[in-house]
Design a protein around this nucleic acid. Structure first.
Lengths: 141, 141
DNA sequence: TTGAAACCCTGGAGCCGCTCCGGGGTCAAG
DNA sequence: CTTGACCCCGGAGCGGCTCCAGGGTTTCAA
């Protein structure tokens, strides 16, 4: 399997595949006589694993560690738990701040329904006022 | 006001202030004889405005455009609306994907309560299986 | 047989929004 | 006279790609 085939099979960009190899996430593949990379089934599976973890927004470093556990299944899995826990905590923290953001933006948007001059735009007024630390409709305080 | 005073007054890191100046978000301040930057009230206000927008997770480019409207209040504010709208859409999209992420991670975590070998770790099993595209408990499909 | 399209290679730069670093100058207090 | 706090600058580094220039190879068709 050449790199283009692997890319098609997994939906991962060719450049990204080479990048994963460079940073040591994907083992070095074999080479044809002309220097082209040749991949096996195991590469495809590992790449799919990496992408699945990325879809869970895990940093590459965590994935690297998970791959270590896959390679050494006799190790204790306490760290796996911790890793998922930490990821969950990150996601939840981000969720909370995004929720706050959404409501601020939504009420900000409500400040300006029509098209007029920037001078009279409620959004701009809110933003400027908020920067001054003054109370404003877009903050729930 | 020197850069350190401005940093203290706004809670923005000194390096970040210089960075904003470099990328043209903050106008160039005056200089003392020794080359130290000196800021006025207007700088402080503009910096506060920038940070407030950053707190809404707006990219610097959007903030640059908002500052343009502040400077030219006679312009039509249609683009301001659009800008906020786009930001809201970004935030909501991210919220949706994070919500999905959270439930996947939460059910993943439930796969392994205790400390045993990685070989028997439900989390690792799930991740590997999911990468294979097989049905698994952590996906709601 | 030639040539165009599609594939592959490498090393390096660029993206965002900072953050840190090294190597230096300035200034007031003790 | 030294210590420490403050300031200057240019450049590198972060994560996770993404793109680019400049080249080689393969494959198919005219």
């Amino acid at each position: 399997m050449r790199i283009g085939d692997l890319a098609k099979a997994t939906g991962v960009d060719i450049e990204t595949i080479r990048y994963y190899e460079k940073v040591g996430l994907l083992p070095e593949p074999g080479r044809e006589a002309n220097g082209y990379r040749t991949y096996r089934q195991a590469h495809l599976e590992q790449l799919a694993f990496i992408r699945h973890c990325r879809a869970l927004d895990m940093p590459l470093e965590s994935i690297r560690r998970l791959l270590g556990f896959v390679a050494h299944p006799e190790a204790e899995c306490g760290d796996i738990n911790q890793l998922i826990e930490a990821q969950l905590a990150r996601v939840r923290a981000r969720l909370n701040s995004l929720r706050a953001l959404e409501s601020q933006l939504a009420s900000l948007r409500a400040q300006c329904g029509e098209n007029h001059s920037a001078r009279e735009c409620g959004i701009l007024h809110e933003l400027v006022a908020a920067a001054h630390g003054e109370p404003c409709a877009c903050h729930s305080r």
